[in-house]
Design a protein around this nucleic acid. Sequence first.
DNA 1: ATGGTAGCTACGCTA
Length: 257
Amino acid sequence: MRIATWNVNSVKARLPNVQGWLETASPDVALLQEIKCETASFPAKDFEALGYEVHAVGQKSYNGVALLSKHPVTDLLTRLPGEPEDEQARYVEGTVQGVRVASLYLPNGNPVGTEKYPYKLRWMDRLKAHAKGLLESGQPVVLGGDYNVIPGPEDVYDPKGWTEDALFRQETRLKFREILHLGYTEAFRALHPDMAHAYSFWDYQAGAWPRDMGLRIDHFLLSPQAADRLTVCAIDRGPRGQEKASDHTPVIVELDV
DNA sequence: ATGGTAGCTACGCTA
């Protein structure tokens, strides 16, 4: 089973890019983030035409996630538990062929020192609690998405310059590791322990893409039952170089299921 | 050099 995650930065602005990539890469499941539209206006038909069942969770203007699958999806969950008053559309989860799969968009958290950063930390605590429960099910679990977390200094072009950023500061990285320590495997680093410049995001500004000033912030976390079946994890830089590109590029895992 | 770009929305916010 091939699963892709991609922060598309507006599904409507990106429709030709996303459709074209899905036709070529043909993942069984595509996890999208930052669809930036309301659920009802998600262009579901454009993806159904490619053979996908569509489950979008959106809101006006910001955020929004989607789970596209070539196989039936059951037991859909459309919000991350733990803070019922949280209205931001950042989580969708369902079961595909016995695998529990989630598309998540973790809050950015900048600027640190505003309410945005404690919200990010609370969201990570909620994800940790939920991820712990998922492990107890014993099924393979794949949590993919834009984590807005740079796991280590090898995952950013200028670690010193990013030390106080919400994506890289110690408190953020420690909390990310707390989730891993529950028993999850970060797929890319597990298969490519020494690969440098393996970024998944390049800012639109300051020529970040041509200068390869990137970050690796889009990740797959796998439960032991999923990690045991992991054969491939790859970043496809192709879409970032296209016209009208998203600032993120897709990451893919393949599981032998 | 205190900028730069992109998307949503209709101005400033978010990233």
